[in-house]
């Protein structure tokens, strides 16, 4: 199967590979796995507590080219967005941007799930706090 050039670009030059301190209060970590193929994806976001804007994002993915590209793209997209904006990212937008074929759609679903899981983790860390925003 021939990969789309955007997928290859993300695969060969992945953006934001690495990790953030998962114990930091401002970091949300989402680790998700794909039931279809055994791929696992970890996506972390660092959030500005005052503005709720995602300052930084890192990922690490063990999986196919499309899974790596999807998560790389996801980190690019969430940076600079607020939590609400990041939650609105749909897997279909990733599919469109990377021209993923039907059998690789689950990779984009995984990336969307990873964003949601990371945000959920962040929100959980701040549960019980008074909402100032």
């Amino acid at each position: 199967m021939a990969y789309n050039t955007k997928v290859i670009d993300h695969y060969e030059n992945p953006r934001n590979v690495g990790s953030l301190d998962k114990n930091s209060k401002n970091v949300g970590t989402g680790l998700v796995g794909a039931p279809e193929c055994g791929d696992v994806m970890k996506l972390q976001i660092e959030i500005d507590e005052k503005t709720h804007v995602i300052k930084d994002a890192k990922f690490k993915t063990f999986g196919c080219g499309s899974a790596i590209a999807s998560s790389s793209l996801a980190t690019e997209w969430v940076k600079g967005k607020t939590i609400e904006q990041a939650l609105a990212i749909k897997n279909t937008e990733i599919v469109k941007e990377l021209s993923l074929p039907p059998i690789k759609i689950h990779c984009s679903v995984l990336a969307e799930d990873a964003i949601k899981a990371a945000i959920q983790d962040y929100v959980k860390k701040h549960e019980g706090e008074e909402k100032t925003a």
């Binding site: 680790l31 796995g33 696992v40």
Partner: peptide, 18 residues
């Protein structure tokens, strides 16, 4: 239907590959 993946397994699978 989406299979609920046992999250503990996903975690240890990730750590193992690392």
């Amino acid at each position: 239907q989406k299979a609920a993946m046992p999250i503990e397994l996903a975690e240890s699978w990730f750590e193992l590959q690392e």
